[in-house]
Amino acid sequence: MTTERIPPPAVAGEREMIRAFLDYHRSTLAMKCDGLSDEQLRRQSMPPSTLSLLGLVRHMAEVERAWFRRIFDGEDIPLVWSDSRDFQVAYDASTSTRAEAFSAWETEVEHARRIEEKAESLDVTVYEPKGGEDVSLRLVMFHLIHEYARHNGHADLIREGIDGTVGA
């Protein structure tokens, strides 16, 4: 399977640009996992870290769910792999499969897209209890871009360690 990654437009309105950058980073994570077996996806980066590509996919499913469904849309649901706010639980992909992790992640991405699309504007705010303040959809989307960009750097190093593949 080869992931299609569409670069963000050079000129666009703010919402379209933010949406495109978020989708670009989502695609980058999927691309870093292309062509690898479940065993390779579970391979940990380096001791003592338990970080793996599959763990990153699971973690990002939790991040998407927490920010878009739980916080922004107010759904009273647990995280995918944990009933707390402990996103670290998702990093343990030792028994996970590509099918399980990607299914959960893709489901959460689709929910996030629907929630974002139905919001009137990027200025819509909701209360974020952990931070104790209101946050805008703009902040949520920028936070997700930041989270993906940071973890895609990790994914690049992990992938290089697996089979030498490097690049954007």
Rank of each mutant, 00 (worst) to 15 (best):
M1W: 01
M1I: 05
T2K: 06
T3D: 06
T3I: 01
E4C: 02
P8L: 14
A10H: 02
V11H: 03
G13W: 11
R15I: 01
M17Q: 13
F21L: 03
L22R: 00
D23E: 13
D23V: 01
H25L: 05
S27W: 07
T28W: 12
L29H: 12
L29P: 06
K32V: 07
C33G: 05
D34I: 06
D38Y: 12
R42P: 03
R43V: 12
P47H: 13
T50I: 08
L53Q: 04
R58Q: 14
H59T: 08
V63L: 06
I71G: 11
D73I: 05
G74S: 08
D76T: 09
D76Y: 07
I77Y: 08
D83K: 15
D83Q: 15
D86S: 09
F87M: 07
V89S: 10
A90W: 15
A90H: 09
Y91C: 04
D92I: 09
T95N: 14
T95R: 13
S96D: 10
R98E: 12
A104N: 08
V109E: 02
E110I: 00
A112S: 11
R114P: 00
E117W: 12
A119M: 08
A119K: 00
E120D: 10
E120Q: 04
T125P: 01
V126H: 01
E128P: 01
G132E: 10
V135A: 06
S136T: 13
R138N: 08
L139W: 15
M141W: 05
F142D: 02
Y148K: 02
Y148N: 02
A149F: 09
N152C: 13
N152E: 05
G153W: 04
H154T: 03
L157W: 12
L157V: 15
I158F: 15
I158C: 08
R159S: 03
G161W: 12
D163R: 06
G167V: 10
